[in-house]
C-alpha cells in the first residue's frame, strides 16, 4: 500500500478503507448543544469541543463531530458561519494563517493531529484538500498529478509514477480527456477539468480523507454534475468532507449533513432526515430558504 509510510509515521496500523479497525470502546456522545447525533460507530476522524479564534474573534464555538469511513459528510450554512474554517482545521491548513488559534481535540484514527509529535506534512498527505477555486500549478498536467507522489517518494521509478498518474487521472474521470495532452500546462484546461485535475492531484498521494471546500462554486452545472458523480465514486475508497453552499448538492452527494450557524454546529444528522425533518428551528429556516 502506497501510504503505508504515512500510517507508520502516525503510528497507526496499516489500514484498508474497506475494513475499518474495530472501535475500542463504546462511543460516548460528547457533551454538546448540537441537535442530533454527532458521533458515528466507526469514525476515521473525531473532533471534540473545537474552538477557533482569529485574533480575538471566535470563529468556531465548541464544535464536536465525527467523520465516518467511506461517507460523504456535507457541511452547510450561511456565508461566514465557519464551515470553511472548521474544514481547514481538519488538515491544519489554518496553521498558515498567522492569527488563527485552534483549541479542542481533533483525532485522525485515534491520533491527536494537533499533538506536538504529529508531523503536519504527513497529516496533510493523509487528509488531502480540494479548494474552492481550481488551483492547478503552472506545470504540465502530468507534473501536477506527479507532484504529490514525488515529494512523498511514493514511486520508485518512472513507470510506477506513470502508473500512479494514470490511475489518479482515471479515478478523477479526467484520463480520457487529457491522455493526449499530459505535457500541456494544467492551467490551460477548462474550469471543470482543472478542478478534476486538482482532485486527481489530491488522490495521487492516496489520502484517507479528502476535504472539499465548495469545490463546484466556480463551475457550470455540467462540470458540477461531473464532480458530484466523481464524489460519489470516490466514496468507495475515501472519506469525504464537503463544504457547499448548494443545499441540492448536499442532498445529492452526502450521507450525513451538518448545519453551521455563526460558528455553532446547530444540527447533525442523516442527510435524508435533515432535509425532510429538521429538528432545530434555525436549520429549518435555512433549509426552507427563510434566510441565508
Amino acid at each position: 500500500m502506497l501510504n503505508q509510510k504515512h500510517a507508520v509515521l502516525l503510528e497507526s496500523p496499516a489500514k484498508t478503507n474497506d475494513v475499518p479497525p474495530p472501535s475500542p470502546v463504546q462511543i460516548q456522545e460528547p457533551d454538546t448543544k448540537t441537535v442530533g447525533r454527532v458521533t458515528v460507530d466507526k469514525p476515521i476522524m473525531t473532533t471534540r469541543n473545537v474552538d477557533v479564534y482569529y485574533g480575538d474573534k471566535q470563529a468556531i464555538i465548541d464544535v464536536s463531530i465525527d467523520v465516518a469511513y467511506n461517507e460523504v459528510l456535507s457541511m452547510i450554512g450561511p456565508s461566514g458561519c465557519g464551515k470553511s474554517t472548521f474544514l481547514r482545521c481538519l488538515n491544519r491548513m489554518n496553521d498558515t494563517i498567522e492569527s488563527a488559534r485552534v483549541t479542542g481535540k481533533i483525532e485522525l484514527e485515534g491520533h491527536d493531529i494537533y499533538d506536538k509529535k504529529t508531523d503536519v506534512v504527513t497529516l496533510r498527505a493523509r487528509v488531502g484538500m480540494v479548494f474552492q477555486k481550481p488551483n492547478p500549478f503552472p506545470k504540465s498536467v502530468y507534473e501536477n498529478v506527479a507532484y504529490g507522489p514525488r515529494i512523498h517518494g511514493l514511486a520508485r521509478n518512472q513507470s510506477e509514477l506513470d502508473e500512479i498518474v494514470q490511475t489518479s487521472l482515471r479515478r478523477a474521470g479526467l484520463w480520457d480527456e487529457v491522455k493526449d495532452r499530459l505535457g500541456q500546462p494544467g492551467t490551460g484546461l477548462s474550469g471543470g477539468q482543472q478542478q478534476r485535475l486538482c482532485i486527481a492531484r489530491c488522490i495521487a498521494v492516496n489520502p484517507d480523507v479528502i476535504l472539499m471546500d465548495e469545490p463546484c462554486s466556480a463551475l457550470d452545472p455540467i462540470a458540477t454534475a461531473r464532480i458530484e458523480e466523481l464524489i460519489d465514486e470516490l466514496r468507495q475508497n475515501y472519506s469525504i468532507v464537503i463544504v457547499t453552499h448548494s443545499m441540492q448538492q448536499a442532498a445529492r452527494v452526502s450521507q450525513r449533513t451538518a448545519y453551521f450557524h455563526l460558528g455553532d454546529l446547530i444540527e447533525v444528522g442523516e442527510t435524508a432526515t435533515i432535509f425532510t425533518n429538521p429538528q432545530d428551528k434555525l436549520t429549518e429556516d435555512y433549509l426552507t430558504g427563510r434566510f441565508g
Partner: peptide, 27 residues
C-alpha cells in the same frame, strides 16, 4: 504568486521548502 498555489502545495503535504522550490519559484 497566488496564495491558492501555496495552499494547493501545502495541502498535498509538501514542506514549506518543497513548496517554495517546486511551486513558488518556478511560478
Amino acid at each position: 504568486v497566488p496564495q491558492s498555489l501555496r495552499d494547493g502545495s501545502l495541502a498535498l503535504g509538501s514542506t514549506q521548502s518543497e513548496m517554495i522550490r517546486k511551486v513558488v519559484l518556478p511560478a
